[in-house]
Amino acid sequence: MGAPPYEEKETCGTICLKYLLFTFNFLFWMAGGVVMAVGIWTLVEKSDYISLLSSSTYAASAYILILAGAIVMVTGVLGCCATFKEQRNLLRVYFVLLLCIFLLEILAGILAYIYYQQLNEELKQNLRETMVKKYMAEGQEHITKAVDKLQQEFKCCGSNGSSDWADSLWINTNDEKQKRVPDSCCKTQMNGCGKRDHPSNIYKVEGGCITKLENFILDHLKIIGAVGVGIACVQVVGMVFTCCLYRSLKAEPY
């Protein structure tokens, strides 16, 4: 006479776990879309600035988020199927995918943190050289576009200041010796405006474009790191629910 109440209790517990896991999967699927959107936004909207960096760590973090987000969305659907079909094999696959995504997002967070620490040194070593040697150079149109966009968008001129352009290979060619800075340094950009190197005409920003670009990328790294680690921590809850449901189904008679 004591067996039925026990079975009923187990069934109720399983039903609760199923609905909890289904709710988690729905929210998890939405979170996957957010993770993927952050990665795509980083690569598409700010891809010009990525070309100014010598390291691929910043781009790699974004790619990892896109991959993780795509897997999250597929995993969310699989999790719903596994939950309502009550198939332990699917639950095992679901748990392994959750674990893989967890590791991917932790990796993205770690990469973002590591790059956060070394970004200033990289910009100091490479941004000036990139501007001086590659601006307007043949085959470096993407660099030229990125530098012009950087100076106009952040209202800066040169890596450390406008005086950096005095060493530019482009400025020192016969055709461009009249120019002191690129036209993109001008507060009001027009053809030939870079001939007059005066604070009333061009941007004079303390720290130059290095400071502006560094602050911009640091803000993005914070977002990438926070999203990656935050979603990864939430996944721990999903893995716990999955383990509980798996054990509950295993304990029930066939």
Rank of each mutant, 00 (worst) to 15 (best):
K250L: 13
I101G: 03
L53G: 06
A82D: 08
Y113H: 10
H220T: 01
D48N: 14
A68F: 12
M190L: 06
Y94H: 15
L52N: 11
E7Y: 13
N25L: 08
T130L: 05
L65C: 07
G109V: 02
M131F: 10
N191H: 09
N174E: 14
A59N: 06
T83L: 05
F28A: 07
T42W: 08
L221R: 01
E10I: 05
Q189D: 12
K177N: 05
M73S: 08
K149R: 15
A112K: 02
W165K: 02
N25Y: 09
G158Q: 06
S200R: 05
A37T: 13
K18C: 13
S51V: 02
V132D: 08
S163D: 15
A137E: 12
R92L: 13
T144P: 10
H220N: 14
C12T: 04
N174C: 03
T75K: 04
G192K: 11
I224G: 00
D197Y: 08
E7G: 04
M1N: 07
F241P: 10
Y135T: 01
I114S: 13
L249M: 10
N89S: 10
E105C: 02
F241K: 09
M73A: 10
E122S: 08
I171R: 15
S184P: 11
K133A: 09
K9E: 13
Q117N: 14
M190E: 12
W170S: 01
Y116E: 15
F22V: 11
C81I: 14
S61Y: 01
F26P: 00
C186E: 03
G230E: 06
S168K: 06
I50L: 15
I110C: 11
G238Y: 10
S61W: 03
A31H: 05
W41G: 02
V237G: 01
T211I: 07
G76M: 14
K145A: 15
K134S: 09
F95D: 01
L20D: 07
A82C: 05
T23W: 01
V181Y: 10
Q178H: 10
S56R: 09
C12G: 07
E121S: 14
N201C: 01
M1I: 07
